[in-house]
Amino acid sequence: MFATATIALLVIMCLALVRAFRGPKIFDRILAVNMFGTKTVLLIAVYGFLTGRPEFLDLGIFYALINFVGVIAALKFIERLEFYDEREER
């Protein structure tokens, strides 16, 4: 069961990675990074149970925290960048 969950998470991480690479809008990328971070937290948890050592779960809390603050910072600073320009993110 944990193996299936791991594979599913890895597939979702790949999909989020594709969205982060392709963009095209800045918000697509922020959302992709946010989702990637969430999946990393889940992968830490699942991987801990998969390898039989779930004592590192508290690292997951920290990843979730970093992810939350990082996204707030990205959105905060984006206000200051003129992001309504017509150029595509490439």
Partner: peptide, 21 residues
């Protein structure tokens, strides 16, 4: 786009941290 690069570096760090785990 430097902004996209910073975002991807965030992903890079998460990935390498996962590899360390």
């Amino acid at each position: 786009s430097l902004f996209a690069i910073v975002m991807l570096f965030g992903i890079y760090s998460l990935l390498s941290a996962m590899i360390f785990i």
